[in-house]
Write a protein that binds this DNA or RNA. Structure first.
Length: 594
RNA sequence: GGUCCUGUAGCUCAACUGGAUAGAGCAACUGCCUUCUAAGCAGUAGGUUCGGGGUUCGAGUCCCUGCAGGAUCACCA
């Protein structure tokens, strides 16, 4: 509110001092750098042509007018063409009491608009890994941020449950599994199925080698290896709905799903609706055939169906193979259409998928547009960079993946170790302690993955990446725990923090904190527009940092002035509230004590 | 080769959309626990913002060009 008041007053100042008309909402104010006095800065250079004065004179004129005529301004200083404005303490207090009173601070009113966001979307032949963690945390957090912005959000995923990759695991299990099940081995279902996928690859390579030794050329051997033939036959039988194949497929996918559920639960990630490729690929095929009839697509001599995107600067893209079977793109066409049928009210669909698929989504959106779906232009590919390891790229076939479950458990164990070393768990029950380890360990992981601009690829070094000091979740959680301790004490002392004095002399850090708190809704909006959890992460860190400065420099309970003491408790309470809110947008919980 | 993304302190990242002397964290070094939690605070040191041009009062940010890294351009998913 201070900012908009300042803009109004500046607009008036421009017209009073220089007789020029600049609407308030066209004036841009930036935060004053720390080394100068004041909180808000007007850069005067852009207005010089209209004021016809030097930068200093322009700033000087506006500043002195503001001090005389604006109720929020108590002082100013001019450095070159920069007008630094000092805001009246009573205005800060008024601003703060507004924030204190607003119940839903950080949430915007219902916009009556629906959006859909997709994330995770794994294959069912291998367990989730570090890349999925970035994907899931990003998608889930963006969903929360959009909710805070007043959208109603549907969280979905498409499960790639059919295709040759599944059949590979099935064949390997049939051959070598000896009836093994998750229940009897105690192994998570997704892990068990993943192991057979790896086993397939190993046996496949062995068979190729044997064939090559028998004098068959390598290219041919790759096609003729018996185990691969078996997998292809399996896929064919599945597509023909052979009961045995379908039964095995259902059984093994079931194992995978229960394994995934466990992982999602620990991640704190969920979905409102699941889509299965096995249920959407046929619709995609129908749509392609319809498009063919309408002349949007064309058929080549061999019977394959294509779309020509050369007018759009791309090339031709295959939609149906010559044998009539569908490809990845076909399935995604079907899925998109099905989703808009299921949820006719959604205005946008957001796909959280790695940046290696940027081309794919450009093509997909173009095709949907060509098919005449008006919503195609509103689809958005939320693209993010890969997570690299010090050893290079993760490759599941080479075993250089960081498994999601392993990593989360390691994080929790490290958090426990750290906490014990610091001796921070006196008075905790076993259950409470475990909750804390999980909160801190998973929080550190999520924050690490979310604080970075999604576009950027990032390096994950298992030994060094996760820290508990500095720009990390534990630092922020710790700040929240500190405030909680203060609030507990205030309650004991009978200080209720609902009333804020109207006047009083504030400390620089207190002004800064109120200023930052006032910024928060704007940051939530910005994060929503840009699908950018990193903006929230950065904000919550900055706020925590500032609070710790306050905590260090200013004593609350030894303050003699009762009103000031109450104000400081209230300020602390609001900071804690905003930290909690911001962290919840990232999917991170904060403790009362640590 | 075409298209897209990225390049900022030794490392990981910021920089409010073109503003002041480019900021944080980690790592290194120096201080601060008899006070509301030291997972903290204060400080020192660390930079040719990949190079070269241009646009203007002003460029890490915009334009051109070169360099480096990555992704992608499949009858794979």
């Amino acid at each position: 509110m201070i900012e908009s008041a300042l803009k109004q007053d500046l607009s008036r100042a421009f017209s009073a001092c220089y007789d020029i008309n600049i609407p308030a909402d066209e004036i841009s104010i930036q935060p004053t750098r720390r080394e100068f006095e004041g909180s808000h800065t007007l850069v005067c250079f852009p207005y010089l042509k209209q004021t016809r004065k030097s930068p200093e004179q322009t700033a000087e004129g506006l500043g002195s007018w503001l001090v005389e005529n604006s109720v929020v301004v108590s002082g100013y200083n001019v450095v070159k063409g920069f007008l630094n404005i000092v805001v009246e303490d009573s205005s800060w207090l008024q601003e703060f009491s507004g924030i204190l009173a607003s119940e839903n601070y950080g949430n915007f009113p219902d916009r009556k608009e629906e959006v859909m966001i997709e994330y995770s979307s794994p294959n069912t032949n291998k367990p989730l890994h570090l890349g999925h963690l970035r994907n899931n945390f990003l998608g889930w957090s963006v969903a929360e941020i959009l909710k805070a912005n007043g959208y109603s959000v549907h969280k979905v995923q498409i499960i790639n449950d059919r295709g040759i990759h599944i059949c590979k695991s099935m064949v390997a299990w049939q051959r070598y599994g000896d009836g093994e099940t998750p229940a009897e081995t105690g192994k998570k279902g997704d892990k068990l199925v993943g192991d057979y996928y790896v086993r397939f690859d190993r046996e496949y390579k062995t068979e190729i080698k044997e064939l090559v030794e028998q004098g068959i050329p390598e290219e041919e051997a790759k096609k003729e290896a018996p185990i691969l033939k078996e997998a292809q036959e399996m896929l064919l039988r599945w597509e023909q709905k052979d009961p045995e194949a379908v039964h095995l497929w259902e059984r093994m996918n079931g194992w995978v799903y229960s394994g995934f559920d466990q992982t999602y639960k620990q991640m704190g990630v969920d979905f409102d609706k699941l889509y299965y490729e096995s249920e959407t690929y046929l619709l995609g095929k129908e749509e392609v055939l319809k498009g063919l009839e309408k002349g949007i697509f064309f058929r080549k001599e061999d019977g394959s169906v294509w779309v020509d995107l050369s007018k759009e600067g791309l090339d031709q893209k295959l939609l149906l193979r010559s044998d009539g079977t569908s490809v990845y793109m076909t399935q995604d066409i079907g899925t998109a259409i099905l989703r808009f049928r299921d949820f006719p009210e959604i205005i946008r669909q957001i796909y959280t998928v790695g940046n290696e698929q940027e081309y794919h989504f450009r093509v997909l959106f173009l095709i949907l547009d060509k098919l005449g779906y008006s919503w195609a232009k509103e689809c958005y590919h939320l693209s993010y960079g890969m997570v690299d390891l010090p050893t290079g790229k993760m490759k599941s076939r080479e075993g250089t993946v960081v498994d999601a479950d392993d990593l989360m458990n390691e994080m929790i164990a490290t958090a426990e170790e750290h906490t014990r070393e610091l001796g921070k768990i006196e008075g905790f029950s076993g259950e409470e302690a475990r909750e804390l380890y999980e909160m801190v360990g998973l929080g550190a992981l999520k924050f690490f993955l979310l604080k970075v601009d999604p576009k950027k690829r990032m390096l994950f070094d298992p030994n060094e990446s996760i820290q508990f000091q500095g720009n990390t979740a534990p630092f922020i959680q710790y700040t929240h725990a500190r405030i909680s301790a203060i609030l507990r004490k205030a309650e004991q002392l009978g200080i209720s923090a609902n009333e804020v004095p109207e006047t009083g002399s504030l400390h620089e850090v207190e002004r800064m904190l109120i200023n930052m708190l006032g910024d928060y809704p704007g940051r939530v909006a910005e994060a929503g527009q840009n699908y950018a959890p990193d903006i929230i992460a950065q904000f919550v860190f900055d706020l925590s940092k500032e609070y710790n400065r306050f905590y260090q420099e200013i004593s609350i309970f030894s303050e003699d002035d009762e009103e000031l003491r109450t104000f400081r408790v209230a300020l602390s309470a609001v900071v804690a509230r905003v930290i909690r809110h911001g962290m919840s947008l990232l999917g991170i919980n904060v403790p009362e004590q640590m």
